[in-house]
Amino acid sequence: MKEIFGTAGAAGAAGTPGTSGKPGGLPGVTPPAPAALAAKVRTLAPSMTRSMQRVAEAVAADPAGCAALTVTGLAELTGTSEATVVRTSRLLGYPGYRDLRLALAGLAAQQQSGRSPAVTADIAVDDPIADVVAKLAYDEQQTLADTAAGLDMAQLSAAVSALAAARRIDIYGVGASGLVAQDLTQKLLRIGLIAHAHSDPHLAVTNAVQLRAKDVAVAITHSGSTGDVIEPLRVAFERGATTVAITGRPDGPVSQYADHILTTSTARESELRPAAMSSRTSQLLVVDCLFIGVAQRTYETAAPALSASYEALAHRHTPRNSGTTSRR
């Protein structure tokens, strides 16, 4: 690949595929690699039942100790049932508890080798600015690593293919996710694709009504339950467009109308760092992965379009000579 696009890399295994009944979903899920386990726990724990949260928190806090326990032992440790342990294992992406134990053993080995650093403390009101920078830098790095490890490569590849072949692309997001939607839109426009970002829910729905089978709709919502984003995605889904969800809650309502789900991770939320800040980091990584993938697939047309946009912007910032310039 030529330097104009740089390079893009992603690690890891699977997230959660689309659960909709619409044709085109990808069957089969690869269990997350050990490095992705902690990320899955952080992402999914808020949406679990309290009993499942106890199991998830236990395996995240002491992977080595839990890896040595049978399903009965972990159930007793967390005050839950064997069925809850198995359900938690499956929600985290493993076929059963045996597979989760293997991942826990791998995660414990990584931590012992120093490749999985301890989580830093939350930012405090009286932290020196140097500590704030260090803590934010660590959290940002962890968020990016968790997102890369948890991305389902099959889902990402399918989303890239759909975008590359799309007649038209509509992107929905509100608040901080709306800023990410605008970022993806301007990237796609610069390689010659027809893309629109919609933060107004009414305009989003009225545009979604016009979508058809060769179009793509992308919904960006960290919570997976933002009604103003889900509604236009539902309309696009029912009109036959290919739908993509970028979300931190792959089990949320948005998944009902998504052909392809790209799961994002989030750094720990704190009083001084709301979810909107930390979720944007992982969303932007997914957006960049989509953009590079589409640019690679459409290189013959994308490269000239990108060069033309660079040239146009360069001319805009270059002082013009006085006098009238005639058109060619």
Results as ranks from 00 to 15, higher is better:
P274G: 10
S309H: 14
I169N: 03
L107Q: 09
D200Q: 05
T80H: 00
N207A: 15
A56R: 03
S116I: 08
P304T: 03
G28K: 03
A103T: 01
V160D: 07
S177D: 06
L272W: 04
H317C: 13
L156G: 01
A38G: 15
P23C: 06
A64N: 08
S326H: 13
G323K: 02
E231W: 12
A13M: 11
P27T: 05
R268N: 09
P32Y: 01
M52K: 10
T264G: 06
T325I: 10
S157L: 08
I292G: 10
D152T: 02
A166L: 06
L44R: 00
S20Y: 02
T84Y: 02
R273E: 13
G15E: 01
S282L: 02
V294L: 04
K214T: 15
M1H: 13
M1I: 14
A181P: 05
V55D: 04
K214S: 15
S322C: 06
A103E: 02
V254M: 10
A302F: 04
T243Y: 07
L100W: 00
D131V: 15
S199R: 07
L44M: 01
L211S: 13
P128G: 13
T318D: 09
A258T: 05
F237I: 00
T264D: 02
S278W: 06
T7G: 11
V218Y: 03
T80V: 12
A124L: 14
L26S: 09
R98D: 14
P128Y: 06
E311N: 15
